[in-house]
Simulated scan of single mutants.
Amino acid sequence: MGHTARVSAIAWTAAVSLAAWLWLLLCQGFFWRTDVRLPRRRDPEDWPAVGIVVPARDEAAVLPASLPSLLAQDYPGQAEIFLVDDGSSDGTGELARALAHARGGLPLTVGSPGEPPPGWTGKLWAVRHGIALARARGPEFLLLTDADIAHEPDSLRELVAAARTGGFDVVSQMARLRVESRWEKLVVPAFVYFFAQLYPFRRIGREGARTAAAAGGCVLLRAETAERARIPEAIRQSVIDDVALARTVKGGGGHIWLGLAEKVDSVRPYPRLHDLWRMVSRSAYAQLRHNPLLLLGTVVGLALVYLVPPAALVAGASTGDAATAVLGALAWLVMTGTYVPMLRYYLQPLWLAPLLPFTAFLYLLMTVDSAVQHCRGRGAAWKGRTYARPDTVTDEQPS
Score class of each variant (00 low, 15 high):
Ala5Ser: 12
Val7Ala: 07
Val7Arg: 02
Trp12Leu: 11
Trp21Asn: 11
Cys27Ile: 03
Gln28Trp: 07
Gln28Cys: 06
Phe31Gly: 02
Leu38His: 04
Pro39Cys: 00
Pro44Met: 11
Glu45Val: 08
Asp46Gly: 04
Trp47Lys: 12
Ala49Trp: 03
Arg57Glu: 10
Arg57Thr: 13
Ala60Arg: 02
Pro64Gly: 09
Gln73Ser: 10
Pro76Gly: 08
Glu80Val: 15
Asp85Ser: 06
Ala96Ser: 07
Ala96Gly: 08
Arg97Thr: 15
Gly104Asp: 09
Pro116Leu: 10
Pro117Ala: 09
Trp120Val: 00
Trp120Leu: 01
Lys123Glu: 09
Leu124Met: 01
Leu124His: 00
Trp125Met: 06
Ala126Ile: 08
Leu133Arg: 14
Ala134Trp: 01
Arg135Pro: 02
Arg135Thr: 11
Gly138Gln: 11
Gly138Trp: 13
Glu140Val: 10
Glu140Arg: 11
Glu140Thr: 12
Leu142Gln: 04
Leu143Met: 11
Leu143Arg: 10
Leu144Val: 12
Ala150Arg: 13
Glu158Gln: 12
Val160Tyr: 11
Ala161Trp: 04
Asp169Thr: 06
Val170Trp: 02
Val170Asp: 08
Gln173Phe: 13
Arg176Cys: 13
Leu186Glu: 09
Phe195Leu: 09
Arg203Lys: 12
Gly205Ala: 10
Arg210Asn: 06
Val219Gln: 14
Ser238Cys: 11
Ile240Ser: 01
Ala246Lys: 02
Arg247Ala: 06
Gly253His: 06
Leu258Arg: 04
Leu260Gly: 15
Lys263Phe: 05
Asp265Lys: 01
Pro271His: 10
Asp275Leu: 08
Asp275Val: 10
Asp275Asn: 13
Arg278Gln: 15
Ser281Tyr: 09
His290Ala: 14
Asn291Met: 04
Asn291Phe: 01
Asn291Trp: 12
Leu294Asn: 15
Val299Gln: 12
Leu304Phe: 11
Val308Glu: 07
Leu313Ala: 11
Gly316Gln: 11
Ala317Trp: 11
Ala323Val: 15
Val326Asn: 03
Val326His: 00
Val326Lys: 00
Trp332Pro: 04
Trp332Met: 10
Thr336Ser: 14
Gly337Lys: 09
Thr338Tyr: 06
Trp351Ala: 14
Leu352Cys: 09
Leu352Pro: 00
Ala353Lys: 08
Pro354Val: 14
Leu355Thr: 15
Leu355Gln: 13
Pro357Arg: 02
Pro357Ile: 07
Leu364Gly: 15
Leu365Phe: 03
Thr367Pro: 03
Ser370Lys: 01
Ser370His: 12
Val372His: 02
Gly379Pro: 00
Lys383Asn: 07
Gly384Ser: 08
Arg385Gly: 00
Ala388Gln: 13
Pro390Arg: 03
Val393Glu: 05
Asp395Phe: 00
Glu396Leu: 05
Ser399Lys: 04
